[in-house]
Design a binder for these strands. Structure first.
Lengths: 227, 227
DNA sequence: TACGTTATGGACGATCCATTCCACAATCGA
DNA sequence: TCGATTGTGGAATGGATCGTCCATAACGTA
């Protein structure tokens, strides 16, 4: 009956995300988004509501993607490779931050920093995302403990929180200007200091212990990876 | 000869900082600052230039304070207490983030996230600050290594980068909504996993090893601590 | 083919905001 | 005391921005 949409909603959301990612919430004008998506104001407002709702949708999608990337890297594998999966994930995050030459940072961090204080929706979604990542990390740590790669007496919850903090911290110090090589070293060091099972000695942090599943930086424009 | 200023510049900058801290750069109107400082527009612009210059000044002061807090906590003490100083610093940072009930976050992180990409001054200053913190941490780690509290074969540069990442990461995950208790645990865990000298076994992360110089949260409105 | 319905996109209105301007006040030296 | 100089604060300005509105276009159905 009605006239169908002439644009691809998915693609429009991607363009909008690019824009919000590049210039933040307050720094993005609806005209920018109209130009970026090629849509007129009428279509924009008709399809997505106002600026706030559009951002919420973009932010929500981003958070989902962040967790999906972690799930793809971390879940579903033998315990014997759990430590390698953790290593791969940390290095992926470091590589993504390092490859962000435009220093856009991560929309999750950016949006949270800008809006969490005054926007309950953003605050809630970012908290949810952190909790989800925490759970994924904890499960992998437990798996590595079962296989004897991590000290089984350590609290997996605490180690997970530490690794999450390192991941988010890499994002922060990367945006603050630390060198790409430093970011990679941080991921290495974080993995190296994880407590080993009793009986073996803890190796110094510059030992390249874990099987480094050499992870190249994902495409620069692939947002979820840069979480 | 001329008429002297009727306001205290230092105090005006503090009020301006409160405002930028609370609502970010783009989210702060010059009217807000005028109201917060009690100054008229004429005085404001006459004394500090435009909004950008005012923010740069506030941001610069904040960065200086952040480094000063770290210096106060970390430098100048016997090697025997270096690890305790590191512990105190990490716990101070965690406590400050935890006590930020308004979730304002840290102006350094907020300003960097919002502006570093497009403002070279902010980008440069935040990079400088990170480097300065890195140096302070590295020196303390070296001191702890000399005293035998940290494995002397570990690379102090890498451990320093890891600790800096943890500090900044605590800020990030705290703003993202993780519980205050979790933040404290992260600081504990980060200290617990630091490599011990060979001969002793690494203790599991839930061991409360380092002398926890019980640091209460600083006053909520004391900005530098929350770095 | 004609009509009802929704999409489209650019013009428009109202608001907001950074900055300037100006009339006046206060100080100090002469 | 007087004047030159700077501080003060609020009104005015110019530009930008969000969201709405509307005339028109495109589709499916009868």
């Amino acid at each position: 009956m009605p006239r169908p949409r002439a644009f691809d909603e998915r693609q429009a959301l991607e363009r909008a995300r690019e824009q919000f990612w590049a210039t933040g919430y307050a720094g993005t004008r609806m005209d920018d988004i109209a130009r970026a998506t090629g849509l007129g104001k009428g279509s924009l407002y008709g399809a997505f509501g106002d600026k706030g709702r559009l951002f919420h949708r973009v932010f929500d999608d981003w958070c989902t993607a962040v967790v999906e990337v972690a799930e793809g890297r971390l879940t579903g594998g033998p315990d014997a490779e759990a430590l390698a999966r953790l290593s791969g994930y940390l290095h992926l995050m470091a590589a993504n931050t390092a490859s962000d030459t435009e220093r856009r940072g991560c929309l999750l961090a950016k949006g949270t920093a800008e809006l969490a204080q005054h926007d309950p929706t953003v605050a809630g979604r970012s908290a949810e995302t952190m909790t989800a990542l925490l759970t994924l990390l904890r499960m992998e740590i437990s798996a590595a403990q079962r296989h004897g790669d991590i000290d089984s007496t350590a609290d997996p919850e605490r180690l997970a929180a530490l690794l999450l903090t390192v991941v988010r911290g890499i994002e922060a110090v990367g945006k603050a200007g630390l060198a790409p090589e430093t970011l990679r070293n941080i991921a290495d060091t974080a993995l190296a200091v994880l407590p080993r099972p009793k009986g073996r000695n803890a190796s110094p942090p510059d030992a390249d212990r874990p099987a480094r599943t050499n992870v190249g930086p994902s495409r620069p424009h692939d947002p979820p990876g840069s979480a």
